[in-house]
Each structure stands twice: as structure tokens, then as C-alpha cells.
Design a binder for these strands. Structure first.
Lengths: 326, 326
DNA sequence: ATCATATGGGTAAACGATTACCTAGTTAAA
DNA sequence: TTTAACTAGGTAATCGTTTACCCATATGAT
């Protein structure tokens, strides 16, 4: 079923059908309008958006590249993006990069071939210089900022401030030996959180101690391993975690060692992913407005696509959520 | 940059460029091949897949419609799908239906307009009759089976068997008063799990008691509310939960009531979502091969797209994972 | 010497929409 | 009565590929 066949059935030209279907029916009589619409309905005609896209040079589709939808943080981002996109009439193509630059580049290439109107990228750890250059598709960097001078939008959170507040919170609760477990800081957000941690302890006159730092990945396993390592090598009464998954792993390790949380060791996370509140003890954490970040990314991207004036960087605030783990 | 411009730069016709780019270069000299490829590289030419799709009538894209990517179960499904799709050269468009038939129908319409090669649907609770009829896009029903006679593929798990095993496990552990909390059973999978539960207790001579049943949603809240309700109205020493989220809510409620899990009340979940093992106590559950289900859905779908012979229904097995909650 | 086949490419018609421009009749204004 | 403007459509080029054919020339077989 094509628009031509519909046109034939209705005894009009395909132009007329097209105009009716697109609401450009100012100069179409109500009679033919109804007739055409009825035939469209009766025949179950489905417009071919591919053909349309080819002509109008817009696919009403955006691509998102994230490390892994199974990670609660990214799935919430994805959800925020999809919801906002749907409201604006866009579909979203989902790509999981597994934090691998190769997959990331491959996906960005494919997305451009598919002529997406824009791309939202939560970058893997290293910069993706090649595919990002000579790109003409609008792009937003979400959460993970990478240093490229290119013309991209950015949605980030004040990571340093968040970690600073987290650490201060632990200090105020009486902690004197605070560990820091996070992703290794070639990635910018983790680096900023580390800075916030350091700033807080130094300000309060606590000595910085390399042995209290464990940097690996943003995973539960890292939290577990990191805590076990810190426990062996040094004395701690508080752990500032780079994200909630790490905090979950940390608590698991502490429990196994029969160390009471929060009495003996206090733990604070970062992100406030959905399950955090259901952990035992419920996680105290620095809440990122994850869903909202996704939404903001879409808003900025669509504004760029529509060639509106926009501020190319938006920094969102974090918020400390006190629960049971500290 | 179009193929024609590349052709002009290389002093060949666009047909030649197209053939080279698509590996149909049997009758192209190595010299021109190299020359064209170099120009393509130098100019950063990106093929327009939209134009290609229009011509070859295939978009190498599939659509997935799930209730909510933020739900761990569905995000794992989505990941399984995306990974398998990528291996087969397909991209995936992600749609969240929020369990609403209206959104579901809207998305299915859009996906068809975008000429996806196939659709994977985890249906919302009620049947989506209208948009599923007169469809000519291949479709797989994943996890949630709905009764349509139409020509669709199906990937399901043996839900009845899983719940049967779960309940039997609780009985073998000594439970005599087993509650059942799940989604209300207009949706088929929950209905089957309920049947498995009932079958198990009746077989062991335990009387069926309506008061021990609480059916609402597949959410943490339902688990919490359901447990509180059962605790008030009746006596229980075991809870068979329709999924892990419910189990998480149940444990939360039991802890609040200072009831020890698993000593006083044993809890078993269903799904084995990622975080289950990190709960306290770690969840005993009926593991569904979630990721694999996503993969299988893609395999079946691609087989249908490529017009291969396939069995239109695949039933996967569950497995009991014993952890700390029972 | 002739014919068949392999080699290296080019021409142009699709694919299914959109839309700038055209036509022709009707109304209204001058 | 002429003309401008509005109404209700139609024509056909175009978007960027792919691919069924077509056309040479070269090579080999008979």
C-alpha cells in the first residue's frame, strides 16, 4: 500500500493524499478529505517514514550510546531520554558500548548512516576523537564529559561538589578515617569526585592517605574488593563511594566481616539508583537527577536540531539523601 | 556528500561506487577499487542508509516494546536483545509502553511506519488486538504471552513449572502456611505462576486459602503492601513471590515487623534479577534466563525475517537458585 | 576467422514520499 | 467588465541509493 494506490482509489493525485495526511489541507475540500481519510483507514495504509525521511531529510530519530542498559544508572538515563524524546515526537535507537571505544565508534558510524537527527553519548573512558570529528550530526555528551573542542552540548552534574558534600557528611558524623572507592579517574566524573573527597578531608585537617584510596570500576565487585582491600591494609570508619553499586558491594563486604553499618563503618554512595532505598541498610547517597538529566539532554539536543539558540552546557545539582548507611 | 559526488571525484559512475561499497566488485579493477575507497575515506563519506533502505526494502532495524527499561527484568531483556541484534547487524529502537495499551499501539504503529524489519513485544496486560491485526511486520511475543491467533513467534518460560518448584521448595523447607503475592492474573504469566503455586500446595495436602493470596503488580510496593496485608489477616511462614521485586518488598516489610527471614518466614522470588544476590538476605529465587530470552527472541525474529523455517514457539526452562532468603 | 565468455564499467529506472509550481474555476472588488 | 485573489486540486522533479540491463574490449576456444 503506497500513497499512490490510495490516491488511485480515491480518484485524486498522490499530492492531494500527501497534503491531507500532513495537515496541509487548507485547499482541500472537506468532501475529498473525508473520502481519502476513509480509504486510508479502510485499507490500513501505513505511511512509509523511510521515504518521507529521504525527502524531508529528517528521521525524527535520535541515537543514544551508553555503556550498558542493565546498569541501573544508565537504564534510568535511557528512560528519561526515551520519555522526553517521545514527547517531542522522536524515536530512540539504543546502543550499548560496554565502555569500549571500538563499539562506541562503530555505533556512532551506524547512527550517522541511519541519519539520526542527533546523538546522545555517554562516553566510554577514553576520548572518541576520530568519529567525533567531521561529524555533522548534533551531539550531546551526557554525564561523562570528555575533552573535545568540538561543537557538542554537555549535560553534567557537579561531581566535585557532590563528593565534597558526601565526605563532609561523613566527617560531621564523626568519621576520621575515610576511604574512597571509585572508578579509576581517567574518566572525568570520577576524577572530579575524587577532588571533592580530597578537598573535604584536607579542609578538615585530615591527612590524605593513598592507602585509603581504591580505584577500579563503577561496579559492585569493585566495592566489594575495594572494601576488603582497605580493611586489610588500613583502618577505616567511613567509605565514600564513587557510586551506589560500589556502595552496595562495600556493604556486602562489611557484612561478611561482621562489621556493623553504620555503627562501625559508615558508607555513602553516589547516584541514588532506584534500589538504593531498598538495601539493608538503605543507602545514604548523593542523588543525581538521573532521569532529569536524560530529559535535559533531549531538550538540548532537540533545540540544537531545530537550530534554536541554546546554552551548550548545563550543570545540574546533586542532593544528599540521608538513609541508614551512615 | 553523496555517492554521486564520490563518483564524480573518482571519474566513475555512481553504480561503480555503489558496487564497490557493497562488495559487489567482482567486475571492478583493483585500481579503481582502491581509488574509490581512498576518496571515500578522504572525504569522510557516510552512506545514507535511509536511501538504501528505501531501495532494498529493509532497514536492518528492529523495534522492541517493553513496559519499562528501568525495571531490571526488562533492562536485561533489552540488553540481551540489543547484543544479539548487533551481532546479526541490526539496530534496535527502544519503546517503553508503561504497560499501557495506548502507548503500545502507538509505538507499534510508529515502528511499522519506520519500516522496522521486525518487532519484539513484551505485551502489556490486555491484548493489543487492533494494531496486531493486519500487520505485515514479523513479530515476536516475548515473556508475556497474549492470546492472538495471529502469526507471531513466542518466547516464553515455563512459569507454572517454576512456581511449582518454588512452592515445593518452601514446603520441603517446612513451610505450612505459604502466601502468594504477585501481579493480578489477567496477565498470563502471573496466572501460570499462580497455577504452579496452587498445584504444589494441593499436591502436598495443604489447604488452599484465598486469604493468603495478594495480587496486584510486579512491583516492590506490591510486595511490601501484600506482605503487610497477609501479616495482618492470616498466619504465614513462607511467601512465594511472583517476581523478585515483590520479594524485595516483602523482605522489607518483614524486617520492619522484626520478623526474621528466613527463620520465621521464608521468601522466594522469581526472575533472578541482577541485584537479587546483593540483597540481605540474598534472594532465593527461580531464575529465568532473561538475557538468553532476549537473544532467542532476536534469533527467532531474524529467522522469520529471512524467511527461514522456524518453530514459532520456544519454551525456556527456569532454575531454582538457593540463597539466603529461604 | 568466428563465436563465446570474461572483464570493467555505465545508464537509467525504480523505491515512496514531498512540494514547488501550475491550472482552472469561482468570487469579489474596482 | 476586467482583474485580483481565493479555492481545489494536479504535475513532475527530487531525495540518495541499488540494480537490471546494456555496451564495449579482451581473451580463449574452435
Amino acid at each position: 500500500m503506497t500513497i499512490k494506490e490510495i490516491a488511485k482509489l480515491a480518484n485524486v493525485s498522490s499530492a492531494t493524499v500527501s497534503k491531507i495526511l500532513n495537515g496541509k489541507d487548507q485547499y482541500i475540500s472537506e468532501a475529498t478529505r473525508q473520502r481519502v481519510l476513509e480509504i486510508v483507514e479502510r485499507e490500513g495504509y501505513i505511511p512509509n517514514a523511510i521515504a518521507k525521511s529521504l525527502k524531508i531529510k529528517s528521521t525524527k530519530t535520535i541515537g543514544i550510546v551508553i555503556p550498558d542498559v542493565m546498569n541501573l544508572f544508565f537504564s534510568e538515563l535511557a528512560r528519561g531520554i526515551e520519555d522526553a524524546a517521545e514527547k517531542k515526537g522522536y524515536s530512540v535507537i539504543l546502543c550499548n558500548s560496554d565502555n569500549k571505544e571500538s563499539k562506541e565508534e562503530k555505533y556512532i558510524q551506524i547512527l550517522q548512516e541511519k541519519m539520526v537527527d542527533g546523538i546522545i553519548l555517554t562516553a566510554s573512558e577514553r576520548s572518541v576523537s576520530k568519529s567525533l570529528k567531521r561529524r555533522n550530526t548534533p551531539m550531546i555528551l551526557l554525564d561523562r564529559d570528555i575533552s573535545i573542542d568540538d561543537n557538542v552540548g554537555r549535560i553534567v552534574v557537579d561531581n566535585e561538589d557532590g563528593a565534597y558534600n558526601a565526605t563532609n557528611f561523613l566527617i560531621d558524623k564523626g568519621c576520621k578515617n575515610i576511604g574512597f572507592i571509585s572508578s579509576d579517574n581517567i574518566n572525568k566524573s570520577s576524577g572530579e569526585r575524587f577532588k571533592g573527597y580530597k578537598k573535604a578531608i584536607l579542609e578538615k585537617g585530615i591527612e590524605y592517605d593513598d592507602e585509603k584510596i581504591f580505584l577500579q570500576n563503577y561496579t559492585i565487585e569493585t566495592g566489594y574488593k575495594g572494601t576488603m582491600t582497605l580493611l586489610e591494609e588500613t583502618k577505616i570508619d567511613g567509605i565514600c563511594c564513587g557510586n551506589d553499586l560500589i556502595a552496595i558491594g562495600a556493604i556486602k563486604a562489611l557484612k561478611e566481616k561482621d562489621i556493623d553499618v553504620p555503627r562501625e563503618v559508615k558508607v555513602i554512595g553516589f547516584d541514588d539508583i532506584q534500589v538504593s532505598q531498598y538495601m539493608d541498610p538503605p543507602l545514604t547517597t548523593i542523588k543525581q537527577p538521573i532521569y532529569e538529566m536524560g530529559e535535559e539532554a533531549v531538550k538540548m539536543l532537540v533545540a540544537i536540531i531545530e537550530r534554536k539558540e541554546v546554552n551548550m552546557v548545563k550543570v545540574l545539582k546533586t542532593e544528599l539523601i540521608e538513609r541508614g548507611s551512615s
